[in-house]
């Protein structure tokens, strides 16, 4: 019963945002896949968004929710750019592995 009353406060939002940020970083570092990396960044964004909204709700300030809307719009754009880069990279290298991502210029086999 005490756990339930704790969950009625702000703690579940903290736990979820921590889980989301953890999930984002873990997928980025552990899975070593470019496609997953782009998605992982979005998940970390979401965790931060949830923190902003929680603070805004419990402090009674609408600016936090405004930040969430702006971040949503920006992350949509950055996600599109990320996907374009991944598709282009796959066409050049025929691989999605993050470990083979050492190419900065166009020359490689010399």
């Amino acid at each position: 019963m005490e756990v339930i009353s704790l969950f009625a406060k702000e703690y579940p939002f903290y736990i979820t945002s921590a889980v989301l940020i953890f999930l984002g970083i873990a997928l980025l570092l552990l899975k070593r896949n470019l496609l997953m990396a782009v998605l992982a960044l979005e998940i970390a964004f979401n965790g931060i968004n949830l923190l902003f909204a929680t603070a805004s709700h419990y402090l009674g300030d609408p600016k936090g929710k405004m930040v969430v809307l702006l971040v949503l719009a920006i992350s949509a754009g950055s996600f599109a750019i990320g996907l374009i880069l991944v598709v282009n990279y796959y066409r050049a290298k025929q691989s999605l592995s993050l470990e083979e991502l050492r190419l900065l210029g166009e020359k490689e086999n010399e």
């Binding site: 339930i4 969950f7 979820t16």
Partner: peptide, 9 residues
């Protein structure tokens, strides 16, 4: 509220 948030988490 607590119960629903518990299930969601």
């Amino acid at each position: 509220r607590g119960l629903l948030l518990f299930v969601l988490t």
